[in-house]
Computed example of a mutant assay.
Amino acid sequence: MSQTRILVLVGSLRAASINRRLAEAAVKTAAEGVELSIYEGLGEIPFYNEDIDVAGQVPATAQALRDAVAASDAVLLVTPEYNGTLPAVLKNAIDWASRPYGAGALKDRPAAVVSASISANAAKWSHDDAVKALGVAGANIVKEASLHFGTIGARFVETHPADDAEALTQLAATVHLLAEAANARANA
């Protein structure tokens, strides 16, 4: 059996962000045969601009993201909520990975979204915006793999999500469902 590769895109650039820690915890839940890798460098990618999205001239950082998405079997977004929507860095990543239109790296790729915020709303607006953008970009949204964490400031202030049994169980279920969708796509 080949390895199922899931690329994780984290919407918070802050090194110690709880969303980053949730992504790290998700990596630890990967079953045998599933590999999760957190993409580094989203903050280095220029904002999408069709004037610089020219064959042979695409910025190296944007091309590296496209290549990483294309090499993955599925994509997992972990997003906080900034001013009621998803962070610009995630929207930008989706924009670059969606091109060229109709044939971008996200096309038909299984994707799921984990959202987390300090509010009880659990970043559900950000989650919905990420799902919408991924869907328009052509990704295959695995809705049942969605996961929301609310009041994370209180819940994870002293505990890393990797040390929270309930969080690990929930993240493992998300990773499992996303891996199943990736395997179904590969075997179709």
Rank of each mutant, 00 (worst) to 15 (best):
Q3M: 12
Q3Y: 01
R5F: 01
I6D: 03
L7V: 02
V8W: 07
V10G: 03
G11H: 07
S12I: 09
R14S: 04
A15Y: 03
A15L: 06
N19G: 14
N19E: 12
R20K: 15
R20D: 00
L22M: 11
L22S: 08
L22W: 03
E24A: 12
A25D: 05
A26C: 11
T29P: 00
A31E: 14
A31V: 05
E32Q: 13
V34M: 08
L36M: 00
S37R: 14
S37T: 15
S37A: 13
E40I: 06
L42D: 08
L42T: 00
G43K: 07
E44N: 13
P46I: 01
Y48H: 02
E50I: 01
I52H: 10
I52Y: 07
D53Q: 12
A55G: 02
G56F: 04
Q57M: 15
Q57L: 15
Q57T: 14
P59F: 10
P59C: 07
T61R: 12
T61G: 05
L65D: 04
D67I: 03
D67E: 15
A68V: 05
V69C: 02
A70D: 11
A70Q: 14
A71M: 05
D73K: 13
A74H: 03
L77R: 04
V78S: 06
V78H: 06
T79G: 12
P80R: 14
E81L: 14
E81H: 13
E81F: 13
L86I: 14
P87N: 05
P87K: 04
V89S: 12
V89W: 07
L90R: 08
N92L: 10
A93S: 13
D95M: 08
D95E: 14
W96K: 06
A97D: 07
R99T: 00
R99Y: 08
G104C: 03
G104Q: 09
L106N: 07
D108K: 12
A111C: 08
A112L: 02
S115Q: 09
A116V: 11
S117A: 14
I118H: 03
S119I: 06
N121H: 11
A122Y: 01
A123M: 10
K124R: 15
W125T: 04
H127N: 13
H127C: 07
D128W: 00
D128R: 09
A130R: 06
A130G: 06
A130P: 06
K132F: 07
K132Y: 08
A133F: 07
A133S: 15
L134A: 04
G135S: 15
V136K: 07
E144L: 05
E144H: 05
L147E: 00
L147I: 00
H148W: 00
F149H: 02
T151W: 01
I152W: 09
G153E: 11
A154P: 02
V157E: 09
E158C: 02
E158R: 13
T159E: 11
H160P: 06
H160V: 01
P161G: 11
A162H: 09
A162M: 10
A162P: 10
D163F: 05
D163W: 04
D164R: 01
E166M: 15
E166C: 07
E166Y: 10
A167T: 09
A167D: 10
L168R: 15
L168Y: 05
T169G: 03
L171S: 06
A172N: 03
A172L: 06
H176T: 15
L177G: 10
L178E: 01
A181Y: 00
A182C: 09
N183V: 14
A188F: 09
